[in-house]
Structures are given as C-alpha cells and as structure tokens.
Amino acid sequence: MERETAKIDEFIARYGLHQGALIQVLQDIQGEFHYLPREALEYVSEKLGTPLAVAYNVATFYNVFSLQPKGQNHICVCMGTACHVRGAQSILDKFRRELKIEVGETTDDLKYSLDKVACVGACALGPIVVENETYHAHMKLDKVGKLLKRGGRK
C-alpha cells in the first residue's frame, strides 16, 4: 500500500486538503487503479478529514466510481436517446449474452467489464460503444462478435 499512498498523496496535492477535493482525488484514483480500493478510500477520507461514511456515499453515488476492479477491456454501451432509437438496447443485450455478465459486472478472468452510459455526446454516430478510450460508431449486432474477438487494446 506504500506505493499507492505516495501516488494518492500526489493526487491530493493537486487539489488541496479539503472536502471539496474528494471527488477529484477519487477520480484520479479510479483512473490510476481502475477502481477504488477500500484502503485508498479509507486513506483519503482520513487525510481530508471527511467521515468514511461520506466518502463511501460519494463512492457509491457516482457512476464513474467502482468498488470492484474494472476489466482490461472496459466496454461502455451508450444508451442515450438517439442511440436507443437506433437499437442500443439490443446491442447491450448481445454483449450481456456473449460475455455472460450483467451491466456493472466484470468477467471472472478480469478481461471484460460491461457498463452502460447515459450519453457520450456523439449522437450522430449512434449506436456507440466505447471500449476503453476508443469510440466504435454505427455499432451493429453482427459487429459485437468482431469487437470481442479482437479483444485487446488497439
């Protein structure tokens, strides 16, 4: 945990030692470790002087945070209105069937995690699936299999 503590201290230094920094620090931790380890949350709440119950509330309130590790390939299916109208639900259902996990879960081998997101703001190109940082536009049901076969960072 020592190396992690040093990294977390770095993050805190960016925003300052006060409650207002909580969400920004947690964002950096989520970005770095791909989830919020319990020890990290406890450490941050102590450092910022916030009760753990409040930090835990923040960690479970916002979609961006996860208390469980995300997969190597984090798949986000956009479920915005424009994408919904173009069939996003069936695409999400296909991912669920293929990966055998529910939204918010990660496969046992930690290779894939599946999430849905309300809207990524690329509505003209829907249905959109974001895989890590890559945006896959005009998604179709038969493209789902191809995406999963490639299964790795580009």
């Binding site: 479920m79 915005g80 209105t81 424009a82 919904h84 809207c119 703001g121 509505c123």
Partner: peptide, 11 residues
C-alpha cells in the same frame, strides 16, 4: 454537465 441524452452542443 450537459446530461440530456442526445444533446451535445456544449461538448
């Protein structure tokens, strides 16, 4: 924050 799904003018 532009949360309305389908709206991305602010982006």
């Amino acid at each position: 924050d532009e949360g309305d799904p389908g709206a991305y003018m602010d982006r």
